[in-house]
Amino acid sequence: MIFVVAALHCEAKPIIDKFKLKKKSVYSKLELFENDEIRLIVSGIGKIRSAIATTLLLSQSKLSSDSVVVNIGCCGSARDDMMIGELVFINKITDKANGRDYFPDPILRHGLKEAAMVTHDVPVEKNKIDQPEGDLVDMEASGFFQAASMFVDHHRIYCFKIVSDFLELSTLSKEFISGLIEKKMEAIDHIFSMFPGLHEKETEVFQAQEIELLRRVGGILKLTQSQKHQFVELVRSAKVRNRNVMEKLSECSAWEIKSKSENKDAFERIRKILSQ
């Protein structure tokens, strides 16, 4: 699943429309939209709000090894060679207030321009800006990234920004912002379509019926808590080594254990079988 965090409704709208996301009335203060593959939350402006919304979105969702978390929105540029409407992959995020840097892994072959982003607490003006750390300016990315990294590994956190201004501090209309994102929806769609191939679901070592078998054998052998832990690790190792482990375990489920000493013997037998 792709989890998207956008600051403003007008930034989210083209994504909502493109992927036909349906509004869910879950939270009174934050808008949430979703379909089977994408969940999007509108955070509001600022890094704290972005962190709160990201946390809410990810803590209330079922995450798996193929979950990807994406921040999409507009930003200002301190660099003149950027174009208004340019979609940019952010490879470094600096929190201006505390000076900390965050680094999304640049592994995906996205084909976009890249830049470093500086997240400010208040809107900044071109003439007054002093930020050697990066070229782009926003108010959310550092909060988003910190919150997302509490839930998923760094390589599954992305930040894409569209340049909307050169820090002139003029008010941009909602239509203008939506229009910028709208124009980049094809590129965003293409990037989203790459995620499942890159972030494949990690195959679980045990299937559901195997977990059931482990539980059954663990119960029959009357394993202690620490033995259970060792037992699972032994089975996991043997399974990765292709040692037909489940067949062997099925045989053990016929054992009868009556006493503590029998339990010890049985555990040692199991250990031997699984270590072959």
């Binding site: 470094k92 892994d105 590994d153 390589h155």
Partner: peptide
């Protein structure tokens, strides 16, 4: 990408080596 200290990138938590 310009950085202050290599450890800021290299020693980040939650990285995936094989990825």
């Amino acid at each position: 990408v310009f950085i202050r200290d290599y450890k800021d990138v290299f020693n980040r938590p939650h990285q995936r080596f094989q990825f």
